[in-house]
């Protein structure tokens, strides 16, 4: 009996240890103090949660599972369920930092998502916490400029030229990131800072294929402190490319309608030829019958 109790104790101890170790794995991850205190400049509203959900389902579900279901993939260290307490105990800034920077088997999403999209994901994760109360940055006395952007392309140096203005005045030291919109995600062309003329240059690979006119859909984001702006438009910055259908021409593998002509002719000429001869013989059998009547 006593022995039994002892075993139970040992098991309990082990379990406790494991749990602590698990938490440790999470808390192991040192987030710089400044990032830890980082706050979302956006209010986590339903729109953000919805967008965060789409992003989460595309990029996070495969490891973290559906929040609240505890169905994350068993890995080492365990990815954990974002709805779980140890997840929710972290600050917004910490979650944001971890998603953005990644570590070991947690991918780095810095290039995949812009900051506002990362906050969408944080908003979605927070939506599973009933007790969560969003802490917002102190905005009092902060003047937030409204940016306008003008995009152009300098063919001579293959550079995308981004001019950032606020009330007609050029804005310096604005971080600009430019993306090409692909079918399934956006490809980072590059990041740059505006100069004192409010202009940032982003390199464009001249080999990048565009449509027949060389146009691609470009997304440019500009951020500086709380000020943010984005613009998305078709720009002729890429190589004009003629797009071919994958099934052009006549091949053995084409559909019957697009079969090679030589094959169609050969097939039908031989089949109909032989059957013509056969029908000739079958009809000719009447001659045998007639040959009797003549005699």
């Amino acid at each position: 009996m006593k022995n039994n109790k002892r075993y139970k104790l040992i098991i309990l101890f082990c379990l406790c240890f494991l749990a602590v170790a698990n938490v440790n794995a999470q808390s192991d991850w040192q987030v710089p103090a400044k990032d830890n205190e980082n706050l979302s400049p956006f209010l986590f509203d339903d729109d953000m949660i919805l967008e965060g959900r789409v992003a989460y389902e595309n990029s996070c579900t495969s490891c973290h599972g559906t929040p609240g279901q505890d169905d994350f993939t068993p890995m080492s260290p365990p990815p954990g369920d974002p709805a779980a307490e140890q997840f929710q105990a972290q600050s917004d800034g910490s979650l944001f930092y971890k998603i953005k920077m990644g570590r070991a088997s947690m991918p780095k999403f810095e290039d995949a998502f812009a900051d506002d999209e990362l906050w969408n994901i944080v908003a979605y994760i927070r939506s599973f916490n009933e007790n969560y109360k969003q802490q917002l940055p102190n905005m009092e006395g902060v003047e937030i400029p409204v940016y306008a952007m003008k995009l152009s392309f300098d063919q001579n140096v293959d550079k995308l030229v981004v001019k950032v203005l606020a009330e007609e005045l050029p804005q310096a030291e604005v971080s600009v990131s430019a993306y090409v919109m692909g079918t399934f995600g956006k490809h980072l062309l590059g990041k740059a800072q505006t100069n004192e003329l409010g202009i940032a240059y982003v390199d464009v690979d001249p080999a990048l294929p565009g449509d027949a006119e060389g146009k691609v859909n470009v997304l440019v984001k500009a951020t500086k402190e709380f000020a943010r702006a984005k613009v998305q438009q078709d720009l002729a910055i890429a190589m004009p490319t003629e797009i071919h259908s994958a099934i052009e021409g006549r091949h053995i593998w084409s559909t019957d309608r697009m079969a090679p002509i030589w094959l169609k002719i050969t097939f039908f000429v031989s089949v109909f030829g032989v059957w013509f001869a056969l029908l000739f013989i079958v009809f000719g059998l009447r001659n045998i019958k007639r040959a009797r009547e003549e005699s």
Partner: peptide, 26 residues
């Protein structure tokens, strides 16, 4: 999109862009 390890990229050859299913990096 189910892969947890970033094995798959998928995209459009005409765009010359492929997107990783795990990291979403294009």
């Amino acid at each position: 999109s189910a892969c947890p390890n970033g094995v798959y990229y998928f995209g459009d050859q005409n765009e010359d862009l492929v997107t990783n299913g795990t990291t979403k990096k294009t």
